[in-house]
Nucleic acid binder design. Structure first.
Lengths: 124, 124
DNA sequence: CAAACATTCAAACAATCATTTGACTATCAG
DNA sequence: CTGATAGTCAAATGATTGTTTGAATGTTTG
């Protein structure tokens, strides 16, 4: 039954049996990948704490509006942020989904580990 | 004091003041980036549940040993996995660090959201 | 030592990605 | 309508990344 070259873990077949299938890993990875770029992580962090338009996000982070727009498109594609137009501007905010809320918590928790002092949510 | 083009959120300056600096975002992003590839996520998931050598990991996931070795190098560089040599083989396992344990919990939580049925840790 | 096995390393390639630039659509003010 | 502002889109570029291949290193066994 064990088809692996070696046999270090006698429970390995049970573990492999519980492993989600490849498609689930790909989906999860593409969500996690959104956190894998510094600029995008900053945008996501900002939208975890406020609702802002592209111009303000760009000015706050010191990058071009096109860059913000591009990253917002990626975040939108993963249903992590949503934008609603209000006149000339489009106000972006974190999506009201389980995944988005989970990522919010994940980001805050990560910063609690790497730099515990600077964190908004932990002070409420 | 508010230097942003628009003024939607009157607390924006306080929020920006709490924002970790760019370096912290880059560090966090490079850790999160490890979860952003399907193959690497599988390897990490496997090492969250067992200790295995490169050959077994490669066979279990159906990829080449060189690919596994390459991804293990990236995971080692971020101090997420550790390998101890035992004879010819090197047994890899999750590092005993806060970040690694946190990522383990993060991965499991993500799968609890995306596919709640298939999860080992939630059944203990 | 020699042979076999486990793993790593380095070069190469294709694919993906972040960013820039400029053009384009949409909205509002005069 | 005109001009100005907000945002998106598409093409192009440079950088990074995942994978393959084959050679090289390290380890055990005979």
């Amino acid at each position: 039954m064990n088809t692996l070259p070696h046999n270090h873990d006698r429970n390995i077949q049970a573990i492999l049996g519980m492993m989600p299938d490849g498609e689930k890993f790909s989906e999860a990875a593409s969500v996690f990948a959104q956190l894998g770029d510094g600029t995008r992580l900053k945008i996501l962090w900002l939208l975890c704490h406020t609702k802002e338009c592209v111009s303000d996000i760009a000015a706050a982070l010191g990058v071009s509006k096109a860059v913000v727009s591009h990253h917002l498109q990626l975040l939108r594609r993963e249903n992590l942020v949503t934008g609603t137009r209000s006149g000339q501007e489009i106000h972006y905010s974190l999506s009201n989904t389980d995944e988005a809320k989970f990522l919010h918590a994940t980001i805050e928790a990560m910063f609690n580990i790497t730099c515990p002092s600077t964190n908004i949510d932990s002070q409420n």
